[in-house]
């Protein structure tokens, strides 16, 4: 009887912990990438986009979604190599025009996941859909299951 109570209490305690308590840190580990990308925005994990997307993004830093994010060639090459190495393995199949997306927010699963999920108030606080950490507190560690 006592054993059952203890077991039950433990199960209840475990269930009450946030889902990401035991998740490992899946965030970006490369310091240069963290510093340079993170100077302006949340450091997105490379696994969101396939290699060709990262290559395209890194070849046009002078116009980085409307911003000038130019880097010296040494840093640019190093960061691109890290992103490509850790990129999503498969390209997206459903892209009709043959180009892979460069905006994570335009990926079909992303849109599906967020449909009717973000209130006007939350959006105002976040400012942009690219500001993952506004709602997903563990986003920098690659943890998004807290919604």
């Amino acid at each position: 009887m006592k054993k059952t109570i203890v077991m039950t209490a433990m199960i209840v305690a475990m269930a009450m912990m946030p889902a990401n308590t035991w998740s490992r840190d899946r965030g970006v580990k490369d310091e240069l990438t963290k510093t340079e990308c993170g100077a302006c925005h949340m450091v997105f994990q490379p696994r969101f986009l396939p290699a060709v997307s990262w290559t395209n993004i890194m070849s046009d830093l002078g116009n980085h979604f409307g911003e000038d994010a130019s880097l010296d060639e040494e840093s640019r090459t190093k960061i691109e190599a890290y992103l490509v190495k850790n990129a999503r393995k498969k390209e997206f199949k459903y892209i009709g025009n043959g180009t892979q997306p460069i905006r994570i927010t335009e990926i079909r699963w992303f849109k599906r996941e967020h449909r009717n999920e973000v209130s006007k108030r939350a959006m105002k606080r976040a400012g942009t859909m690219a500001n993952c950490v506004a709602c997903h507190k563990g986003a920098e560690k690659g943890q998004y299951d807290d919604d």
Binding site: G66, E67, G127
Partner: peptide
């Protein structure tokens, strides 16, 4: 407006 203020990037950092 003031250089002592905390600014904000377009991505809200």
């Amino acid at each position: 407006k003031s250089p002592t203020g905390t600014g904000q990037t377009r991505a809200n950092k």
